[in-house]
């Protein structure tokens, strides 16, 4: 498994290729890429995180995903610093012998990255800045995995 927090962009093709080459048992790759969207005149986003805890928290959820589904590989890369509209924010890539496990695990991991990994977004619109509030919708998306 690969977990990285970095300022620079990631190369999606290279990450998928590395996952494919890591295991002959892989029959499918599911990727989710989060992107900065133009939300109400947004000019940029700045992301900060809690070094150490971020990697631990994502690592714990990757371990849980591996115990719940038969995965052959997982890559999670999250960017920090200032990002512009259209920039990549996060990559979750999951491989498995069959698609169902990979789709489910990718969704599970994204729901937990959004609600448990210690990242915070600040939005810039012109000269004004605002910290983004967490949403009820994201909390509910993560909670549903507890009901299984």
């Amino acid at each position: 498994m690969t977990i990285r927090v970095q300022r620079e962009d990631f190369d999606i093709a290279a990450e998928v290729d590395a996952l494919k080459r890591a295991s002959n048992a892989t029959g499918g790759v599911v990727t989710f890429i989060g992107v900065v969207r133009d939300n109400d005149g947004l000019s940029s986003l700045t992301l900060e995180h809690y070094p150490g805890m971020t990697e631990r928290e994502i690592g714990a959820h990757v371990a849980e995903a591996k115990s719940r589904w038969p995965l052959t590989g997982v890559t999670v890369i999250h960017r920090i610093g200032r990002l512009q509209v259209g920039d990549n924010i996060v990559l979750v890539a999951v491989t498995s012998a069959h698609r169902q496990a990979a789709f489910a695990a990718a969704e599970f991991l994204m729901d937990y990255v959004k609600t448990r990994a210690p990242f915070w977004k600040q939005e810039q619109r012109g000269d004004s800045t605002k910290w983004v509030n967490s949403t009820e919708q994201d909390q509910e998306a993560a909670i549903r995995w507890l009901k299984d």
Partner: peptide
């Protein structure tokens, strides 16, 4: 010990 608002990554 860390204090922070609810997280907003992803």
């Amino acid at each position: 010990i860390a204090f922070f608002p609810p997280v907003t990554g992803g």
